[in-house]
């Protein structure tokens, strides 16, 4: 018998929402002010992340000349903290209504762009950070520094844009599931 709907053998929304109920995240999400407060935390985290990482990227792109890049790197832990705020509040959203996110093309794009930003960051730290961490304020950077910075800045802008349109899609479960059989 062929199933009426595609079957998701990779992700299990029921298991996710059960976990959400067991951990209490579901109750937080659907308490009176839980969702709005999580949204406030989420966008505050985005601002912290984008402020710290975005300004660092702009500096690497040759803007904000005169600001010491190694000194600007001191802001990065605040960006990481912003990302953690987003991850925590994001977990509340996704786990409490997984079907609205997992099968949502905007959410899928958002996750792909976060992965891109993460891989780009990893590649930057592994290949290039050592060469620029000692840079003096007015020293020009190697060309690839600019590329890393642009990929980072534009993937975070893409993350914000994709995140903003998640609510444009109200996916029925059989939609937008490329990995379902």
């Amino acid at each position: 018998m062929s199933a009426a709907y595609p079957v998701d053998e990779v992700l299990d929304p029921v298991a996710i929402v059960t976990w959400s109920i067991d951990t209490g995240l579901f109750d937080i999400a659907y308490s009176a002010w839980g969702w709005p407060i999580a949204e406030i935390v989420h966008f505050s985290g985005v601002c912290l992340l984008f402020g710290a990482v975005g300004m660092f990227d702009l500096r690497m792109m040759g803007r904000l000349k005169g600001l010491s890049l190694p000194a600007m790197h001191r802001f990065i832990p605040f960006g990481v903290f912003g990302f953690l705020l987003c991850a925590a509040s994001g977990t509340i959203f996704v786990s409490s209504s997984p079907d609205q996110y997992l099968y949502n093309p905007a959410f899928q794009l958002k996750m792909a762009l976060i992965a891109l930003a993460g891989i780009n960051m990893l590649a930057f730290y592994l290949t290039t950070w050592k060469q620029v961490r000692g840079a003096i304020p007015h020293q020009p950077f190697p060309a690839r520094v600019r590329i890393f910075a642009m990929v980072s800045l534009f993937s975070w802008l893409g993350v914000i844009a994709a995140g903003r349109v998640i609510t444009a899609f109200r996916p029925p479960a059989w939609f937008w599931c490329a990995w379902c059989s």
Binding site: F43, V46, C47, L48, L49, F50, G51, A52, G54, M55, F78, L157, I160, A161, G163, R164, V165
Partner: peptide, 15 residues
Amino acid sequence: IFHAWGMAFLVGGGI
């Protein structure tokens, strides 16, 4: 989208 980008630059820079 433009509103969120704008706020990210404004508030992110301010922070």
